[in-house]
Amino acid sequence: MAKRVLIVDDEPNIVTALEFLLEKRGYEVRVAVNGEAAMAEVEAFKPDLVLLDVMMPKVSGYEVCQRMRANPQWRGIKIVMLSAKGREVEVSKGMSLGADLYVTKPFSSAELVATIDGLVSGEA
């Protein structure tokens, strides 16, 4: 069965590219455009990995991450945080809240996809 990736980002341009690339790679992809929708999709879609943008209105990526990690049922879901903020403090916060990886924008899409492959197959 195809692995599932949930993309949570409010920026349509990056979502278009990531969705396209991951589908080409054989993932089943869904998109949520804010934190609230993301929580609902985690519940319904049961993804293997969540690509989570930090900067979103209302419920931030940090909070989504924190909520997911607060529920032991979702412990197995990998979380990759994406952010335009790349300072040490933000990376520390993301990792401390339970992210598996913190990727700073801009990034190479090929590298990101390779990293996702690694995380999902349990090799990274």
Partner: peptide, 23 residues
Amino acid sequence: HGGEAWLHREGSAGARSSCFRFL
């Protein structure tokens, strides 16, 4: 301050201790 803060938890679900952590 260019700092951050979050609710930090340690330990397993049963015996968790938590605090506010500032960087």
